[in-house]
Amino acid sequence: MAEFDDQTDQSTVNRLVRGGVLLIAGLVMLFFAWGYPTGTINQMGPGFIPQTVGVLISVLAVAIIVIDLRNPEQEDVGQMHWRGLIFISAAIAIFAILVDVAGLVPSMFLAVAVSICADDDARPIPTLIYASIATLFGWLLFLVALGLPIPAFWR
C-alpha cells in the first residue's frame, strides 16, 4: 500500500500541473489587462474583453483542476518524446538564429541535419548526404523557382 500512496502523491501533483499552467496563464493575462482602459458597457474600452477573457480562463482552469483531482482514474499523460522535442526545437531555433546572419542555404542545411537527429536511427554519413540533397532542392525551390527575397549566403 505504501507504494501506492507514493504514486498517488506524484500523480496528484501531475494532475495539478494541467490546470495549474492554465491558471497561471489566466492570472498573468489579468495582471497585464488590469491596467487597460475598460470603458463603459455601451462604450467599451480595449481592456473590457481581455479582462473578461482572463477571468474566464482562470475560472475554467480552477474547474479543470477540481475535475482532475476528483477523477483519479483518468488516462495518464502521453509519453514524452524527449529526443524529438529537443532536436526538432533545436533545428528550428538554429534556423531562426542563422537565417538573418548566414543566409538561407547554411541555415536550411543545419535545420535538416539537426532535425534528422530526432530519429533514433540517425547515422552521420547518411545524415550529411540527405541534408545536402535536401538543401540543394530547397535552394532550387525557394530561391531559383519561387525567387524568395532571402539571401542565399552571408554577405
Partner: peptide, 25 residues
C-alpha cells in the same frame, strides 16, 4: 526533415520575420 525546413522557410518568408519563426517553435 523536409517538412521542418518548409515550415521554417514558409513562416520566415511570410513577413521576413525571425520572431514569427520563434513563435512557431
Amino acid at each position: 526533415p523536409i517538412i521542418v525546413v518548409m515550415i521554417c522557410v514558409g513562416v520566415y518568408s511570410h513577413r521576413t520575420s525571425v520572431t514569427d519563426v520563434v513563435l512557431t517553435l
